[in-house]
Simulated assay, not measured.
Amino acid sequence: MASLLSFLAVAAILAFVCSPSMATDPTQLQDFCVADNTTGIFVNGFVCKNPEQVTAEDFFFAGLRQPGNTANAEGSMATPAFVEQLPGLNTLGISAARLDYAPYGLNPPHYHPRGTEVLVLQQGSLLVGFVTSNNENKLFTKVLQQGDVFVFPQGLIHFQFNIGKTYAVAIAALSSQDPGVVTVANAVFGSNPRIDPYVLAKAFQLDLKTVQALQAKIWTNI
């Protein structure tokens, strides 16, 4: 009986560790499944395009060649190469983005609900960091120079701030074809419809007028 229980325990652990549900995106069961955005079928992901109609263009995206427009309040711009822009990523569990920062530009606190991010700084210098979950709310922060790499774990709030007087550029790889982005301030103060200001006043320990003033601002995603 003891040996049987030991076997069942090991089997249960292996099933848990090896379960596809542990991955950010499910593992593909074929060479590729190019996203077909023309169908009206809704699934958790995208329906596969007919392989006979797939071309090299489905695996190609030139959108990261050009700098993003940083003429905004934050002074930064993210250019995604997610499955919407690069259909060949469908089911492959990976995506990328280009991040441009004006001098002293900020990619404000945000998180990716479905993906871990690996950031490679190509130009300039950045102050980056992320905060752990509510058990500690510990800040991990670092100043990056050209060629440095930093990891932001999935679902944790993080930011990047250009501390230099010149433009900065980074490339990010993310562990999902569609990692999603939730910018904290935008989601909280710019939701549609608006969150009851009394709720936010109590949550952020602010007076009601301050919350209403924040909600009145124009919140746009970069």
Rank of each mutant, 00 (worst) to 15 (best):
S3H: 13
S3M: 14
S3E: 15
L4D: 13
S6N: 13
V10S: 12
A11W: 03
A12M: 07
A15G: 06
A15P: 03
A15H: 07
V17Q: 04
S19W: 15
S21C: 09
S21L: 13
T24M: 12
T27A: 14
Q28H: 15
D31M: 09
C33H: 08
T38P: 02
T39R: 14
I41D: 06
V43N: 03
N44I: 07
G45C: 12
G45A: 08
V47H: 04
C48E: 07
P51G: 03
E52D: 11
E57Y: 06
F60C: 06
A62W: 13
A62M: 05
A62F: 14
G63Q: 02
R65F: 00
A73T: 08
G75V: 09
P80L: 11
A81L: 14
F82P: 08
F82A: 13
L89D: 10
R98K: 12
R98A: 10
R98M: 06
L99T: 08
L99E: 04
Y101I: 00
Y101H: 04
A102F: 03
A102I: 00
Y104N: 02
P109S: 05
G115N: 07
V118C: 10
V118G: 04
L119I: 03
L121S: 01
L127D: 05
F130H: 01
V131L: 05
T132G: 07
L139I: 09
F140Y: 15
F140I: 11
V143Y: 01
L144W: 08
L144N: 07
L144C: 00
Q146C: 03
D148S: 03
V149K: 13
F150V: 05
F150I: 03
F152V: 05
P153A: 08
L156I: 04
I157H: 05
F161H: 04
F161I: 01
K165L: 12
A170M: 10
P179W: 00
V181N: 09
V184T: 12
V184D: 05
G190D: 01
S191G: 07
N192K: 11
R194S: 14
K202E: 14
F204H: 13
L206F: 04
D207I: 06
L208I: 15
T210V: 06
T220F: 00
